[in-house]
Amino acid sequence: MRFVAMKLHTKEQAKEGEKEVKEPEEQRVTKWELTIDGYLRFLVDSKLVYDTLEKIIEDAAYPYYAEFRNTGLERSASLEKDLQWFREQGHTIPEPSTPGLTYAQYLKELSENDPQAFICHFYNIYFAHTAGGRMIGRKVAEKILNNKELEFYKWDGDLSQLLQNVRDKLNKVAEGWTREEKNHCLEETEKSFKFSGEILRLILS
């Protein structure tokens, strides 16, 4: 999944990237025009997506979803703390917007009807946040948050070990899939990037 995901990055996002820069959010973060309002929209929609993912995993429409409970990568509670911090600074927290609502609904439908495609989104959402997501968080903090480190970018324990544990579980689950199911999972990567890109673009709104 990582190999396929890297091909969908631009050179500005990752050295293994192959995609041309077409959208503003595909440029280096240093070139972004940032505002607190745009960043709050991004955080709110991100929280809706993580809330949805964590509920799907908790309810486990397919038994193997339960393998991914309490991985340590969960972000919903951290985002709640961050939004509370922004409230305390006097900011108004917006309602979720179309990108987050659309993605959350899509994830719900996939999780019930297309588990291989859902797992692709699960992987890309959590793993992208620990890589490019963290780098974006640092740059945003430098530019508009006076270097305040948000809870969204903190994990309990050794992050590389948490990621490896989830990788091992993903590989174990995929062992039971046919070649067609594995290919189908990989083919969903582009959609995952499209939905996540629309949420990321809110930072620049």
Rank of each mutant, 00 (worst) to 15 (best):
K31Y: 08
K31E: 14
K31V: 10
L34H: 07
T35A: 11
I36V: 15
I36D: 04
D37I: 12
G38P: 03
R41N: 09
L43C: 07
V44S: 00
L48G: 00
D51W: 07
L53T: 08
L53V: 11
I56Y: 00
I57V: 15
E58R: 15
A60M: 03
A60R: 05
A60S: 15
A61R: 04
Y65V: 12
Y65N: 05
A66K: 13
F68V: 09
F68G: 05
R69P: 01
R69W: 03
R69L: 13
T71W: 03
G72R: 07
E74H: 06
R75Q: 11
S78P: 01
E80T: 15
D82I: 02
D82Y: 01
F86I: 14
R87N: 01
R87P: 01
E88A: 09
T92Y: 00
I93N: 05
I93K: 09
E95W: 04
P96Q: 11
P96K: 06
P96F: 04
T98M: 11
T98F: 06
G100H: 09
G100R: 12
T102W: 06
N113I: 15
N113D: 11
Q116F: 02
A117V: 06
H121C: 07
N124H: 09
H129R: 12
A131F: 09
R134T: 13
M135S: 08
R138H: 01
R138W: 03
R138N: 03
V140G: 02
V140C: 02
A141S: 14
A141E: 03
A141G: 04
A141L: 06
E142S: 12
E142C: 01
K143H: 07
K143Q: 12
I144K: 00
N146I: 09
N146A: 14
N147L: 06
E149C: 08
E149D: 08
L150W: 03
E151P: 00
E151M: 07
E151A: 14
E151Y: 04
F152D: 09
K154D: 02
W155P: 00
W155L: 09
D156N: 10
G157Q: 09
D158A: 15
L159E: 01
S160G: 01
